[in-house]
Design a protein around this nucleic acid. Structure first.
Length: 231
DNA sequence: CCCTGATTCGC
DNA sequence: GCGAATCAGG
């Protein structure tokens, strides 16, 4: 397998989206987890919570910096090269620049068909309500809402009028979330449930989907990544 | 053991 | 450039 533009794009999106190298690997198919990691690094996509080497940098203070070089594993690295040239490396490098300059190179032809984001069913990473599932290490804003200073009887906003709110839910009404929590018009489906399920028939179709065996996932997947929120 | 990403190095 | 082998932390 070779790294085509599309495969690289998938890799990039999934990597930045927080998918693990393993997930990316068997999503792409034909490549190993190592291959994905190797490629990701070659692409310059690095920096993401690695289990190893959290990088503990507290060098100077009063220690001689010179004696820190040959620490331990000489078994693999011969490298007898005498290169005592420590470049000052003055330029600070802002990382975000690397990913911002991509629009030109893309093959975004108008013939690209991706008209129906609703019908995609990537089970791995999009949850009900359209949230992108991420690893625990990837949470960015742990504290979204500033708590109100005074509790007030939650006046129903105009947007929610007639909608099924949390308090309206019963085991007869579909609990499928519409919109996103925190938004003014967040509510629930409210249709009559599919008996025995928490959702109506339509949303049961969204909630319960067959999981294909690992190796058998569809090879050319419509990407969930970059795709709009499903609603 | 399993998982993870990082790194090295022969190809 | 590629990726298996290896390392190392969770």
């Amino acid at each position: 397998m070779s790294w085509t533009d599309e495969r690289i794009a998938t890799l990039t999106k999934m990597w930045e989206g927080g998918s693990t190298a393993s997930q990316i690997a068997d999503e792409l198919g034909g490549v190993s987890r190592n291959a994905v990691i190797g490629k990701a690094h070659r692409l310059g996509l690095r920096a993401r919570p690695s289990p190893v080497k959290p990088n503990d940098d507290k060098p100077e203070a009063k220690d001689a910096p010179a004696a820190a070089a040959p620490a331990k594993p000489a078994a693999r690295k011969p490298a007898p090269v005498a290169t005592p040239a420590p470049p000052p490396a003055p330029a600070a490098r802002p990382d975000p620049a690397a990913e911002a300059d991509r629009p030109a190179g893309r093959s975004d032809t108008p013939s690209q068909p991706m008209p129906n984001p609703v019908s995609h069913q990537r089970i791995v990473s999009v949850g009900p309500g359209g949230f992108l599932r991420q690893g625990p290490g990837d949470q960015q804003a742990p504290i979204p809402p500033a708590p109100p200073r005074r509790l007030v009887p939650a006046k129903p906003s105009p947007e929610i009028a007639g909608k099924t709110s949390l308090l309206d839910l019963s085991d007869k009404l579909c609990r499928w979330p519409m919109g996103h929590p925190g938004e003014a018009d967040f509510h629930f489906c409210g249709e009559a449930v599919n008996p025995g399920f928490p959702y109506c028939v339509e949303h049961c179709g969204r909630a319960y989907q067959a999981q294909l065996p690992r190796g058998q996932r569809r090879p050319p997947p419509p990407l969930p990544f970059g795709g709009p929120r499903v609603r």
